[in-house]
């Protein structure tokens, strides 16, 4: 096993580090932005080039004298070697694609690094079931439908399922992990501001799937500690 040790939490990116690290949102936004930018540029160039060439060589615009050998009925394809330009273009596109994906690989390693070893991380077990989520805190306290976590602190989720395949995801916090029966998937998030975030099931799991949701409430550290202390008394 390779050892990828990163320090947690790293809000914002380090200039010396080429690939983004930090909160899941930050990583996603950075990478997504670059991909959209490059994707748009490449797409526009390629499609514009196609359109221009197609217009330029439309029938009737070409010179009367035709020095190109045209396909003939019943021919076998003549052996021509015109792959050079093709291979050059391929090389170019390969460089772009590989560079992009390799660049994101660093971030992947960062995301995958074992976050449970981070000091002060809160670990919550998540059990998905038809149709909801049960959250279990380190002290055994359980709640359904609402997950409370502190701001600016890593929260580690250990996710499993009681019945069928589900998937626990929060678009606001950029997390997602499969919930499979008999298996624990681990993921983590780092909320940078307080508030209520959405989370939902992202794997079709039956008739109630569309409404299989939970709120993630991010509290100030002190508020969280307060709640943590009193939670077992109330409900």
């Amino acid at each position: 096993m390779l050892d990828f040790s990163f320090s947690f939490p790293l809000a914002g990116s380090n200039i010396l580090q080429i690939f983004p690290t930090g909160s899941r949102n930050f990583i996603f936004d950075q990478i997504f932005f670059i991909f959209v930018l490059l994707g748009t540029i490449v797409g526009v160039i390629v499609i514009a080039y196609m359109l221009i060439q197609a217009y330029r060589y439309r029938e009737g615009s070409a010179p009367k004298k035709d020095d190109v050998d045209r396909p003939k009925l019943g021919e076998l394809p003549p052996p021509v070697d015109d792959g050079n330009k093709l291979l050059k273009s391929l090389l170019l596109s390969a460089v772009v694609v590989i560079a992009l994906v390799v660049w994101t690989y660093g971030s992947l390693l960062y995301v995958e690094a074992q976050p449970s070893q981070v000091d002060g991380a809160l670990t919550v077990e998540v059990e998905a079931y038809q149709f909801g989520f049960l959250f279990t805190y380190p002290d055994g306290y359980q709640s359904t439908g609402v997950l409370r976590a502190p701001v600016d602190r890593v929260t580690v989720l250990k996710i499993t399922s009681r019945d069928v395949l589900h998937n626990f995801g929060s678009p606001d916090l950029r997390i997602k992990a499969d919930a499979a029966p008999g298996h624990i998937s681990e993921t983590w998030f780092l909320a940078e501001s307080t508030g209520t975030y959405d989370s939902a099931c992202y794997e079709l799991c039956g008739a109630g799937h569309s409404y299989m949701k939970a709120d993630i409430i991010i509290l100030e550290n002190s508020e969280f500690e307060q709640w943590n202390k009193t939670k077992n008394k109330g409900s």
Partner: peptide, 22 residues
């Protein structure tokens, strides 16, 4: 071509994590 370009997004695993199921 558009399908292909948007597919590269999914090949980058960190992005795929978020796109999965959307």
């Amino acid at each position: 071509i558009i399908g292909g370009i948007t597919g590269v997004f999914l090949g980058a695993v960190v992005l795929d994590y978020e796109f999965r199921g959307t």
